[in-house]
Write a protein that binds this DNA or RNA. Structure first.
Length: 211
DNA sequence: TAGACTCTGGTCTGACTCTT
DNA sequence: AAGAGTCAGACCAGAGTCTA
């Protein structure tokens, strides 16, 4: 089966409106109980768009890794992560925004406009257009979501070596039954988001059982 | 067996409704 | 009138089930 090719319609529209460089932005890791939120900004070369770009959730991990390599080879990429302690300090929404700002700043070039996933355009230091389901329909956003997901998965695998009790290799920080059980048994590690209700609850239960 | 679909569980904002 | 509470809709993901 031929790989699907997303058409860069939104990017081309912005370029026609005088925006020279258009970045796609996406963040991953908003829902998990542990680990950072990771954002990526990608400026694609419109002549060399990797085949098979699409919603990062719908792409098999192996294929995601391949696309990650292709994107790094043929596009400008900026990546940033905001750790759990900072999420606790400023809340998850602000942390996502911070991650996106930092990913934009980490780009080797300065984009004139950005396309982001979602319904409400965040305040960024360039023109921003929000696209609902953009990660499945806009190639730049799809590429950013793939890069962010691969980077975050790798970070979580590294954390799994440090904190093997929580099963980060498989749950990547999400609230699976096994993760919650480990959380109740071990208590949270420094990479858990204590501002999230299930972590607070588990911490309280763990303290109670330790007392 | 792999992909699609649905459900569950986490967050947030904004709009609306209810209570004081 | 103002504050509190609720709901919808957006995002993230894993897990289970169904189907081709």
């Amino acid at each position: 089966m031929p790989l699907p090719i997303l058409k860069p319609t939104r990017e081309r529209k912005l370029i026609r409106c005088g925006k020279g460089l258009v970045a796609g932005l996406d963040e991953v890791g908003r829902g998990p109980l542990a680990g950072p939120v990771v954002a990526a900004a990608v400026v694609l070369d419109m002549r060399r768009i990797p085949k098979g770009l699409g919603d990062s959730k719908a792409i098999a991990a192996e294929r995601r890794e391949e696309l990650y390599g292709e994107i790094l080879r043929c596009a400008s990429v900026g990546i940033a992560a905001v750790p759990a302690w900072e999420i606790d300090r400023i809340n998850i929404r602000q942390a996502s925004l911070q991650a996106m700002c930092r990913a934009l700043a980490a780009l080797p070039c300065r984009p004139d406009a950005a396309l982001v996933d979602g319904n409400d355009p965040p305040p960024l230091p360039c023109d921003v257009e929000a696209v609902i389901k953009g990660d499945a329909s806009v190639p730049s956003i799809a590429a950013a979501s793939i890069v962010a997901k691969v980077v975050r998965d790798r970070l979580m695998k590294r954390l799994a070596l440090q904190f093997p009790a929580y099963g980060f290799t498989t749950n990547v920080g999400y609230s699976t039954a096994a993760h919650l059980a480990a959380l109740r048994h071990e208590g949270p590690c420094p990479h858990h988001r204590r501002s999230f209700a299930p972590v607070r609850l588990a911490e309280a239960m763990q303290e109670k059982s330790a007392a």
